[in-house]
C-alpha cells in the first residue's frame, strides 16, 4: 500500500472535507410539500436532528402545519444522511401524535405492576416528588437517590442539567455503558 505523505493528507482533507464551524446549509428551506397526493403550504419547516442511539444523528427537516408535525425529511445538506431518514425516522409524525402518549402526570392507584393510575396535576406531581426526596435524605442520606437514564434520547444537554441537580443534591452517580 502506497502511503500518503503528510502534505498529501493535508491537501486531501481540505479538498474532501468541509471546513469546521461553518454552516453547511445550502438548500433553501421549502415552504410547501406534498401530502396525500396534493401540494400543501406548511406553516414552517424547521431544521433539527434525530437523537436516537444511532451512529448517524441525521439532520431532519420537520414540516409543521396547524401545530402538528406533518412530515419529516432528511436534510439534503447533512453530509451523513444526505437527504434521507430511515424506517424509524419516517414514523415520527405517527409517534409524536400517537393517541397512546402519556398526556399528563399519573399517580399509581393500584399495586405496583398493575399499571393503574389516576391523573394528577404537575403541581401535585412536584409536591409528591419533593416530599419523598426530603424524607429519603432525612432517613437514608442523599446517596439513596439516583437517576436512571441511558440512550432513549441520546441528546447531551438534558443529562448535564439533571447532573447539576443530582450533584448539588448528592445523589449516587450512574456510570458506565452497555
Amino acid at each position: 500500500m502506497r502511503r500518503f505523505s503528510a502534505e498529501e493528507i493535508r491537501d486531501l482533507v481540505v479538498r474532501e472535507v468541509p471546513p469546521a464551524g461553518i454552516s453547511l446549509a445550502r438548500t433553501p428551506l421549502p415552504t410547501k410539500t406534498t401530502w396525500e397526493d396534493r401540494t400543501v403550504e406548511v406553516d414552517r419547516v424547521v431544521k433539527t436532528a434525530c437523537s436516537r442511539n444511532c451512529y448517524d444523528t441525521c439532520g431532519i427537516l420537520a414540516y409543521v402545519k396547524d401545530g402538528r408535525l406533518l412530515k419529516v425529511e432528511g436534510d439534503p445538506d447533512h453530509p451523513i444522511n444526505r437527504g434521507t431518514l430511515c424506517v424509524k425516522g419516517y414514523t415520527y409524525p405517527q409517534r409524536v401524535h400517537s393517541p397512546d402518549r402519556v398526556q399528563h402526570p399519573l399517580l399509581r392507584t393500584g399495586e405496583r405492576g398493575e399499571g393503574k393510575f389516576r391523573r394528577v396535576s404537575w403541581e401535585e406531581a412536584f409536591d409528591w416528588i419533593c416530599e419523598r426526596l426530603h424524607a429519603l435524605r432525612e432517613r437514608w442520606g442523599s446517596e439513596a437517590f439516583m437517576e436512571y437514564l441511558y440512550s432513549g434520547n441520546r441528546e447531551f444537554l438534558g443529562k448535564q442539567v439533571s447532573g447539576r441537580f443530582l450533584a448539588l443534591f448528592g445523589a449516587s452517580k450512574l456510570v458506565g455503558s452497555f
Binding site: C50, D56, E155, F156, G158
Partner: peptide, 23 residues
Amino acid sequence: DLVLPACTIFEQWGVHPSYRHQY
C-alpha cells in the same frame, strides 16, 4: 409510582454530537 409525560425530540432543545461522525 409516578409517571410523567415526556416530550419527544421535536418539543425541546438539545445537542447530540454523534459518536460515529463529525457533524
